[in-house]
Design a protein around this nucleic acid. Structure first.
Lengths: 153, 153
DNA sequence: GTAAACTACGACAACTGCAGTCGGATTTAG
DNA sequence: CTAAATCCGACTGCAGTTGTCGTAGTTTAC
């Protein structure tokens, strides 16, 4: 396990997409959703949550859409994940130090808490900007990257 | 999210417990289960899986039970988690490099793969032995630790 | 040699949370 | 005013996890 939800996946895709389009006018939920085969209304819901947290800025109305709320290099992966899925918790009972009183016998809270910190730190050091950089096709032959190019101009 | 399953929790508790009791004769599933309020049969199932992987050794019969399969400092947290929940996968489609062909549009596989590696590395550096060390009450006042002491003699 | 205590295993029921859908309200450009 | 967007909450269906049960096999104690 240790898997993140699809919504979080979608959120990361959208953030990366918007990061690569920064500078352009805002992008609609529909446009992003269609490009990645995501149900439009689900994509919209995800984006709205990102707005509420402040990671995105929305403009309503006909030509509306979404834009990054701050610079891509100031948004970390953990920001996005926690915006969607809530704070990262390795165990069921951990958000607060005073978790399940019943499980005072738990005995592994402290070690797991440390682990949580390490994971959060790992996620915190990766920014959306880094994700948005096209991976220089150093190892892979160019073929795959070329196919994926969606330069629609 | 990014939460690990309860079975994995139980497994870690059991491993820690056994690590602290290493040297003693084997410990039964019932004994561990009762101490942590875990359903006995579920605990047994978890322990059996750990045996199959080789992290534990079992002895059958009346005075039977479980013992660590190797030294506690040679068992990492990631070993235990993967024994129970299978390989750590941050995304739904990631185990193989060739994941969902349909999602060739995914665009975040590579970044997430790197993140997965980091998480796995973080979990790999923590051993059961480290978890089993009683946390020296350096910061916390002794009170809490004292309460939790279950020296039943 | 029989009963008790334990591991071993698989199949099944119950529950929980996520994924996705629907309906409706609000805003804005043309 | 209409079309195209964002916004928001509530609802359903599905899937995976949790937990239970029954049964078989093994070792020890008496």
């Amino acid at each position: 396990m240790l898997r993140l939800s699809k919504k979080a996946d979608y959120a990361l895709m959208a953030m990366k997409h918007l990061a690569q389009k920064s500078g352009t006018s805002s992008t609609s939920a529909r446009e992003i959703a269609e490009q990645y085969d995501i149900p439009i209304e689900l994509m919209a819901k995800v984006l709205q949550r990102l707005v509420r947290i402040g990671l995105l800025v929305s403009t309503q109305g006909t030509r509306g859409g979404y834009t990054l709320g701050r610079q891509a290099n100031r948004i970390s992966v953990v920001d996005v994940i926690e915006a969607i899925d809530g704070p990262i918790t390795v165990t069921a009972c951990s958000t607060k130090k005073i978790d399940c009183e019943q499980f005072s016998k738990c005995s592994i809270r402290d070690p797991l808490w440390q682990i949580r910190e390490r994971i959060a730190a790992a996620l915190g050091t990766v920014t959306i900007a880094e994700m948005a950089v096209e991976p220089v096709p150093s190892r892979e032959p160019v073929s795959r990257a070329a196919v994926l190019h969606n330069a629609r101009t």
